[in-house]
Nucleic acid binder design. Structure first.
Lengths: 149, 149
DNA sequence: CTAAATGCAAATCTTTTGCACAACC
DNA sequence: GGTTGTGCAAAAGATTTGCATTTAG
């Protein structure tokens, strides 16, 4: 947990629970557990993967519940949804508002690395100039990682 | 590496058929028709939408066939697949190799507009610096269009 | 003629919905 | 206690697969 890869987000369960409550959600076993799993997972993770991580523990949660939790989390901006083109949605904890990052996905092993750069101001202005409001964006890179070459 | 083209190249059925043959595919009624529909459609279009456009004409094609055609076209780089977050894959004709464009999607009406700007050279270099080869990217903007505001 | 493509049916996979029961505040 | 969340079953939607039949080259 020192140098390699992602600097772990300075997000703790307490602040997450607070954000949950502020979003008008009850704090339940299952929701806390999903948060814990998301917090511990360095890459975007799918509903089914979360479901399986639940399974390995003693107390489980229904896959349906996980879908519902993730949808709620998305509404409250606790997580963001990613789609990398394989028909499965993946989720990751949303960083502080206004901060976001992008991804580099290996076309071979599907591994995802975060990319903490982004300066698309001019592009965003262009889109706003086209008449759009509340402009957000998605930027992902695909390549073959060093391990897979 | 991949530069974003600004001018759309003329694409005609003949060159598309040639690209099909070069990809080792037979030129069939259904495939030609799918190409025609893609050529006539300004936005990324789903398999089902293509299927329905077939229907309105006299000769139809099975939805399954359309999926298979699109998959084949994707392998041969005749089309590119897009996913905008609603669980449906959409396809559009691939422009000349190395040229591509991006999209602006209205969060309300789901309409898609092409965006012919892109200067991500520095970002691409960064990713290559991380050890990735054959780096490509995807950039889409989301907003609320003027009509929907 | 022969490999490749198509159509039909049915399967698979992801995600959603309805409803009764349980849990949180 | 009353709303909100969960589990189970089942549905819905997108995409894929198996197999017999047709078609392009």
């Amino acid at each position: 947990m020192s140098k390699c890869g992602t600097e772990r987000k300075n997000i703790d369960m307490d602040s997450l629970h607070t954000r949950m409550r502020n979003g008008g959600m009850k704090v339940t076993q299952q929701r806390s557990q999903v948060l814990k799993i998301l917090l511990a997972h360095p890459e975007p993770i799918s509903a089914d993967e979360i479901f399986k991580k639940f399974d390995s523990k003693s107390e489980g949660a229904d896959l349906v519940t996980i879908y519902r939790i993730l949808k709620k989390f998305e509404e409250v901006l606790l997580v963001t949804r990613q789609e990398f083109g394989d028909g499965v949605a993946r989720f990751e904890l949303a960083l502080e508002s206004g901060h976001h990052h992008h991804h580099v996905i290996c076309r071979h092993c599907q591994r995802v690395e975060p990319l903490h750069i982004c300066d698309l101001e001019s592009h965003i202005k262009t889109v706003e100039g086209m008449g759009y409001k509340q402009v957000s964006h998605r930027l992902d890179f695909f390549g073959v990682c060093s391990r897979c070459q």
